[in-house]
Amino acid sequence: MTSILVLNGPNLNLLGTRQPEVYGATTLADVEKLCQTKADELELSIEFSQSNHEGVLIDAIHAAPAVHAGIILNAGALTHTSVALMDAIASIDLPVIELHLSNIHAREEFRHKSWIAPVAVGQICGFGASGYALALSAMADLLAEA
Rank of each mutant, 00 (worst) to 15 (best):
M1S: 08
I4S: 08
I4F: 08
L5N: 09
V6E: 03
L15M: 14
G16C: 04
T17E: 12
T17G: 06
Q19K: 15
V22C: 06
Y23G: 09
Y23M: 11
A29I: 09
K33P: 01
L34H: 04
L34C: 05
L34S: 02
A39G: 11
D40E: 07
E41H: 13
L44A: 08
S45T: 14
S45F: 09
E47S: 05
F48K: 10
F48A: 12
S49D: 14
L57D: 00
I61D: 12
H62F: 08
A66G: 14
A69K: 08
G70W: 09
I72F: 00
L73Q: 00
G76Q: 07
L78H: 11
S82D: 08
V83I: 06
V83W: 15
L85H: 09
L85M: 12
L85V: 07
L85N: 04
M86Y: 02
D87R: 15
S91E: 09
S91A: 12
S91G: 15
P95K: 09
V96F: 03
I97R: 00
H100D: 08
L101E: 04
N103S: 08
N103H: 05
N103T: 12
A106S: 15
R107N: 08
E109Q: 05
F110Y: 13
R111E: 12
K113N: 14
S114I: 05
A117M: 13
V119T: 13
A120I: 02
V121Q: 09
G126L: 10
F127I: 01
F127W: 05
G128K: 04
G131I: 00
A133E: 10
L136M: 07
L136D: 01
A138F: 02
M139C: 05
M139W: 10
A140P: 03
A140I: 06
D141G: 14
L142M: 12
L143D: 06
L143M: 07
L143G: 06
A146G: 14
